[in-house]
Amino acid sequence: GIDPFTGEAIAKFNFNGDTQVEMSFRKGERITLLRQVDENWYEGRIPGTSRQGIFPITYVDVIKRPL
């Protein structure tokens, strides 16, 4: 089901994660935001896939912030 505490964002740019914990994505992908890790990073996942990880806040347009 849908978790009411998650947020939502759209990727503004392609992001290629450097490490296992970073999640790569392509511009235009819809991302579920799980939490804000710190002032620069979100943790999120791509709905319908097993992809999950952290990524820079500046790479996405936030539609709804996670609670």
Rank of each mutant, 00 (worst) to 15 (best):
N40T: 12
L34I: 12
R30V: 11
I31K: 00
I10Q: 05
I54G: 01
G53A: 01
V37M: 08
P66D: 13
T19C: 14
D61A: 10
A11Y: 01
G28E: 03
V37C: 11
L33C: 08
S24W: 06
R26I: 14
V21G: 14
F25D: 01
I46N: 01
Q52D: 03
G28N: 06
G48R: 06
R30N: 07
T58K: 10
R30I: 11
K12R: 12
S24T: 08
G44Y: 01
D18T: 13
F5W: 15
G53C: 02
T6Y: 12
R35P: 01
P4N: 13
G48I: 02
S50Y: 09
G7F: 09
I31S: 00
P66M: 07
P4E: 13
W41S: 06
D38Y: 09
E8D: 08
G28K: 03
I31A: 00
P66R: 06
N14E: 10
D61I: 15
P47K: 09
V62L: 05
N14R: 05
A9C: 12
V37Q: 04
I31H: 00
R51D: 02
D3F: 10
T32W: 07
K27M: 09
K64A: 04
P66A: 07
I63G: 04
Q20S: 15
Q52L: 07
S24V: 03
G1E: 14
N14G: 06
T19I: 08
A9E: 01
R26M: 14
Y59D: 03
T49C: 03
K27C: 09
G44Q: 00
R26T: 14
S24L: 02
F25I: 07
T6F: 10
I54K: 07
E39W: 08
P56G: 01
P66Y: 05
N16D: 14
D3Q: 11
A9M: 03
G53M: 02
K27P: 05
Q20A: 14
R35C: 12
G7M: 09
D61S: 09
E8N: 07
R45C: 14
M23S: 01
F15D: 06
Y59I: 05
L34S: 05
R35N: 07
K64E: 11
N16W: 15
F55Y: 00
Q20W: 12
P66L: 09
L67N: 15
Q20P: 14
V21L: 13
S50E: 11
P56W: 02
T49F: 03
G53P: 01
T32M: 08
G17H: 03
K64V: 06
T6I: 07
L67Y: 05
T58W: 14
G1P: 13
I57Y: 05
D18W: 10
L67S: 15
A11T: 03
E29F: 02
D61R: 11
R35Q: 09
F13Q: 13
N14H: 10
Q52N: 08
F13M: 14
T58I: 14
G1R: 09
E39G: 11
I2D: 15
D38V: 05
T19W: 07
E43Q: 07
P66E: 11
T49Y: 02
Y59A: 12
F55I: 12
D18R: 12
L34D: 05
Q20K: 13
Y59M: 14
N40L: 14
I2E: 15
Q20G: 11
T19N: 12
F13C: 15
G7C: 15
I31C: 01
R30E: 06
P47L: 10
P56E: 03
G28Q: 03
N40Q: 12
G1C: 15
V60S: 01
E22I: 04
R45A: 11
L34H: 04
E8L: 14
D38T: 07
Y59S: 09
Q36K: 08
S24N: 07
K64N: 06
Y42T: 03
D3T: 10
G7I: 08
I46T: 02
G53S: 01
G7D: 10
R26S: 14
T58P: 08
G53L: 02
T19E: 11
N14T: 12
E22S: 07
D38F: 08
F13D: 13
N16L: 11
F55H: 00
E39K: 13
I31G: 00
Q20V: 13
I57Q: 08
G17R: 05
V60A: 04
F13E: 14
T49G: 06
V62N: 03
A11W: 01
G17K: 05
W41Q: 06
Q36N: 06
V37T: 04
F15S: 01
G48W: 06
I31V: 06
Q36F: 07
F25P: 01
I46G: 01
M23Q: 01
F15K: 01
I31F: 01
F55M: 02
Q20H: 12
E29C: 03
A9W: 04
R51L: 04
V37N: 02
P4C: 15
D61G: 04
I54P: 01
R65G: 15
P47N: 10
L33V: 09
F25T: 01
L33W: 02
R45F: 12
E39L: 09
V37D: 02
V62Y: 04
V21P: 11
I63V: 09
I54L: 11
K64Y: 06
D18Q: 14
Q20E: 14
I54D: 01
F15E: 00
R26N: 11
N16M: 12
D18S: 12
V21H: 14
E8K: 08
G28T: 02
T32D: 08
T49S: 09
P66Q: 08
A11L: 01
A9I: 04
R45E: 08
F5A: 10
L67F: 05
G28V: 01
G44P: 00
V21W: 15
I63W: 05
N16F: 12
R51M: 04
I63E: 05
V21Y: 14
F25L: 06
T19G: 13
F13Y: 12
S24M: 04
A11Q: 00
T6M: 07
V37R: 04
R30L: 11
G7Y: 13
W41K: 05
R45L: 12
F13T: 10
Q36M: 08
R65Q: 15
I57V: 13
R35F: 08
G53N: 00
I57M: 09
R26C: 15
E29T: 05
I57P: 05
A9P: 00
S50A: 12
T6P: 13
Q36V: 08
I31T: 01
G17I: 03
L34N: 04
M23C: 03
R26E: 14
E43L: 14
T49R: 03
F5V: 09
E8H: 09
I63A: 05
E39D: 12
R65V: 14
G48F: 08
G28P: 00
R45Q: 10
P56N: 03
I54W: 07
E43C: 15
L67V: 15
G44T: 01
K12S: 06
K12W: 04
L33F: 04
I46R: 01
I54T: 06
F13S: 09
K64S: 04
T49V: 03
I10L: 09
W41P: 00
T32K: 08
I31L: 06
I10S: 03
I2M: 13
G44K: 00
W41I: 05
F13A: 13
K12T: 07
V21T: 11
Q36T: 06
S24F: 04
M23H: 01
F13N: 09
G1K: 10
T32F: 07
E39H: 10
R65T: 14
F55S: 00
R45S: 11
P66S: 09
K64C: 15
Y59H: 12
I46H: 02
Q20C: 15
T19L: 10
T6V: 10
F13P: 00
R26G: 08
I46Y: 01
M23D: 01
R45K: 12
F25Y: 01
E22R: 05
W41D: 02
E8Y: 12
R65L: 15
T58F: 14
I57N: 07
V60N: 00
G28D: 06
A11M: 01
N16E: 12
I63N: 04
E43W: 13
V62P: 05
E22W: 05
I57E: 08
Y59V: 09
E43M: 12
F55P: 01
P4L: 15
R65A: 15
I2H: 13
D3P: 10
V62C: 05
G48K: 06
I46W: 01
G7L: 07
K64G: 04
D18Y: 13
M23K: 00
D38Q: 06
F15W: 08
L33A: 03
V37K: 05
W41T: 10
T58D: 13
L67C: 15
F55D: 00
D18P: 08
A11R: 00
K27R: 10
L34F: 06
V37H: 06
T19S: 11
T49W: 02
Y42R: 01
Q52R: 11
P4T: 12
T32N: 08
N14K: 05
I63R: 05
T19M: 10
I46P: 00
F13V: 11
Y59L: 10
V62A: 04
K12C: 09
T58H: 12
I46M: 05
G53H: 00
R35K: 10
P47E: 14
W41E: 02
T58N: 13
A11F: 05
K27L: 07
V62R: 04
L34W: 06
D3R: 07
G17F: 02
F25K: 01
D3N: 10
Y42C: 07
N16A: 10
E39C: 15
V60W: 01
D18A: 14
R35T: 10
F15A: 00
R35S: 08
Y59G: 03
G44E: 00
N40D: 13
K12F: 04
